[in-house]
Design a protein around this nucleic acid. Sequence first.
DNA 1: CCGACGATTTCCT
DNA 2: GGAAATCGTCGGT
Length: 215
Amino acid sequence: MGGHWPAGTRLSNRPLPRRFYQRSSLDVARDLLGRDVVCESAEGVVRARLVEVEAYQGADDPGSHAFRGQTPRNATMFGPAGHLYVYFTYGMHWCANIVCGAVGVAEAVLLRAAVVTDGRDIAGSRRPASTARDLARGPARLTKAFGIDGSWDGTDIVRGSFRVLATPSIGGTVRTGPRVGVSGPGGPTPWRYWLDGVPEVSSYRPGVVRTRSGR
DNA sequence: CCGACGATTTCCT
DNA sequence: GGAAATCGTCGGT
């Protein structure tokens, strides 16, 4: 694991440069759509096209892990752009973000859904009960398909075994919308980005009002 | 120290 | 549509 990008890599397979990520997470989120992630592991390579992402910021975003400042868990968010911030949630799921912006500023983009185009057998072996469409649909399914867990937190994706390729695979209409209940000066902030008309995005429950039955 | 709950998924009705 | 599963994290005593 963690090998370097092979010499003589084809132009179309070059990874995005670090400067791509050294911008606002909102811009990065929008520009990530339609690009392919290539993730190498001992089992082989899984390639998938990003179709839904979500931007997070620190101080301005109540939904962000970094809203109340730095903690041991979210420390990676405050580090340099172009690294993975991987966290554990609901006692069983891993979710992966790409850190954006300047050092000291907590910004990241959550990878919410992708379409697996290569290495379906490998991804499928990690998610046996999953249909092809569901392999990487949803942030926790996506990490499972790629084989990402907490040991990947802090991974450099510009020079690592997880890469986002610079050449977009598809175009399409980028749709964006706010999280329910979150607004900012001058109107709601469009935190979420997805490609319109992609089946893998499906009707995503907006805002998710947590069901709390007598607890 | 304690308790609430989460950037979710899955299964059941 | 609704609830369970499952545990680390964080804020409040």
